[in-house]
């Protein structure tokens, strides 16, 4: 368990010292979201109607950005082999990596999503529900993304391949996440959508590290 937390702390220190990676994905999120008013016009009613979808899609894409370095850097400098030998099962290594990815990408996204949603003229009563949906949603994205990153590890054009693999799998997260925010904006109950998101999280939490661990074992052989 100490090693597990140690691994997360290592990832955290690495990302703090190379702050550019986290900053790049947040910047991408904000920039991509701010392109939409330019493209579809600044009319508040249209923007407000589209805002949950825009925030979710941009968050999904921004969370994918740092994934190809998640295991790639460790494979290049050989520390992946060390991680495989450190006594933790590969799935625990994968889980630690996924949680670290959520800490350094998901949490900043969550912090940036509120202001962006307000700028997109989203109804104010729906913003807390949007964030409440993003909280489990970004964890699921990190878990799915880490599994995808482990699977494409060592492939040619892995960076291009990764979105092709992860985006279709992430479709349910997007549907329920936007559904919750839309329901709140329309004055309906958002609770079922949020519960379904949590159910997705409960399914992804044990299964994705298993898949990622199996892929890591194959990559480190």
């Amino acid at each position: 368990m100490t090693r597990f937390w140690g691994l997360i702390a290592r990832e955290w220190r690495l990302s703090v010292r190379h702050g550019g990676d986290t900053l790049a994905s947040i910047l991408f999120f904000v920039l991509a979201a701010s392109l939409f008013p330019l493209a579809i016009g600044p009319a508040p009613e249209t923007l407000g109607r589209l805002a949950p979808g825009i925030v979710w899609v941009c968050a999904l894409l921004a969370a994918l950005l740092p994934l190809d370095r998640l295991f790639g850097a460790d494979l290049d400098d050989g520390s992946l082999d060390q991680l495989m030998l450190c006594g933790l099962p590969p799935s625990a290594v994968a889980l630690a990596k996924a949680l670290a990815h959520w800490l350094v990408t998901g949490v900043p996204l969550l912090l940036a999503a509120g202001p962006v949603a307000v700028m997109l003229r989203m109804p104010e009563e729906a913003v807390p529900v949007l964030l409440a949906g993003l909280l489990p949603g970004t964890i699921v994205l990190s878990l799915l993304g880490s599994a995808g990153a482990a699977i494409v590890l060592g492939a040619r054009r892995g960076g291009v391949l990764l979105p092709l693999l992860v985006l279709p799998l992430a479709a349910p997260v997007l549907i329920f996440g936007v559904g919750a925010a839309d329901a709140a904006a329309a004055g309906q109950a958002a609770r079922p959508h949020l519960l379904l998101l949590c159910a997705l999280l409960a399914a992804a939490l044990p299964l994705c590290p298993l898949a990622a661990g199996a892929a890591l074992r194959g990559a480190a052989e």
């Binding site: 599994a147 699977i151 494409v152 040619r156 054009r157 898949a211 892929a215 194959g218």
Partner: peptide, 25 residues
């Protein structure tokens, strides 16, 4: 995605393994 992945590795065995995990996911 499966078609692209299974052919994306220089070592075919790695491709088979990665694609098998992807198919199960």
């Amino acid at each position: 995605g499966h078609i692209a992945l299974i052919r994306a590795f220089d070592d075919p065995q790695r491709g088979y393994r990665a694609a098998a995990i992807l198919a199960l996911v």
